[in-house]
């Protein structure tokens, strides 16, 4: 059985080398990697919160004497900022158990260490002021940028600045079908290899002001189409009319995909996350690329 198989395989190779007119396409999975850390689920958030509370409850008392020299201003400011619990006293009845204070901490509970406020700005945290955008002013308040951009709010799917915690993939409307951009491998450009053909093709349809980094020379997957442009699922079909589309993975690093007017085959493009791709593309196409796309 093994031998027969090997024979047929070698036979097939022998034939294809002579007839290199089998249609091949090279397709590019261009992704934008996440810019911010991934969103955590509700369960994770609550679990981390629970663990942190447990840790704080079991934490040793904050060694104030180690961090603040006695009699300094810093020590006084720190001491004034703390909320000291009520100490135990003779003749006083505490229904919820007697306080057990050591070094200013009730050892039955977690200790809340409050840092003295240094910045007056943090009081009006909600208000955005002109001074915030004055980048020459080193005294401007420190404020984190929003993880949700204006492109998220507008739902502009052509922008690279949307869905920052997720991986975005470039999809194009090529000949009426939403798919990853794919390019024909012709006999004249065969020597450059699949990855080069795909990268060059991308620059033809999207301009050359784009910096990409292809992960590997070798393809990540193959999709087969029959003569009617339908996806074939069984693998043993060695027909000459079958088109094979090889998928190459690549990352965009800088620049942008700028749709070229001169190109007729591509009419539109979108940067989408996995779920949106599932809704947009053909079901049979998605079943072939499902495992190649990142969940985050």
């Amino acid at each position: 059985m093994m031998q027969i198989r090997q024979l047929t395989r070698s036979f097939a190779t022998a034939t294809t080398t002579t007839t290199s007119n089998i249609p091949i396409k090279s397709s590019l999975i261009l992704s934008r990697t996440p810019i911010v850390t991934q969103d955590i689920s509700e369960f994770e958030k609550l679990f981390y919160n629970y663990q942190e509370e447990l840790e704080r409850r079991l934490m040793w008392t904050f060694p104030k004497w180690f961090y603040f020299k006695k009699g300094t201003v810093a020590e006084r400011e720190f001491s004034e900022a703390q909320n000291y619990p009520i100490p135990n006293a003779r003749g006083v009845w505490f229904p919820q158990g007697n306080p057990d204070l050591k070094h200013g901490r009730d050892r039955r509970f977690k200790q809340e260490v409050i840092l003295p406020k240094k910045h007056i700005e943090s009081d009006n945290n909600n208000k955005e002021e002109d001074s915030d955008n004055d980048f020459d002013n080193v005294g401007r308040p420190i404020r984190a940028n929003s993880r949700i951009t204006k492109f998220d709010k507008e739902n502009d799917q052509t922008s690279l600045e949307r869905k920052l915690p997720r991986t975005l993939y470039l999809l194009v409307n090529q000949n009426g079908n939403w798919k990853f951009p794919s390019f024909n491998v012709l006999s004249e450009n065969e020597n450059s290899g699949l990855h080069k053909i795909a990268e060059d093709g991308l620059r033809i349809i999207g301009g050359d002001k784009i910096n990409t980094w292809s992960v590997s020379n070798s393809p990540a997957a193959v999709i087969k189409y029959d003569s009617n442009n339908k996806i074939i699922h069984n693998t043993d079909n060695n027909d000459q009319l079958i088109t094979r589309e090889f998928l190459i993975k690549s990352h965009i690093i800088a620049g942008k995909f700028d749709l070229q007017k001169s190109n007729n085959s591509v009419s539109d493009f979108k940067w989408l996350v996995k779920e949106e791709i599932k809704d947009l593309v053909d079901i049979s196409y998605y079943s072939k690329i499902d495992h190649l796309l990142s969940d985050i």
């Binding site: 810019i35 911010v36 940028n145 929003s146 002001k209 784009i210 910096n211 690093i253 800088a254 620049g255």
Partner: peptide, 19 residues
């Protein structure tokens, strides 16, 4: 040039002017 994800985005999220 590729960025490591941070908790919050940078002021300039994406560098467009690539040649």
């Amino acid at each position: 040039e590729i960025r490591t994800p941070t908790d919050f985005p940078p002021r300039q999220i994406w560098f467009y002017d690539y040649f």
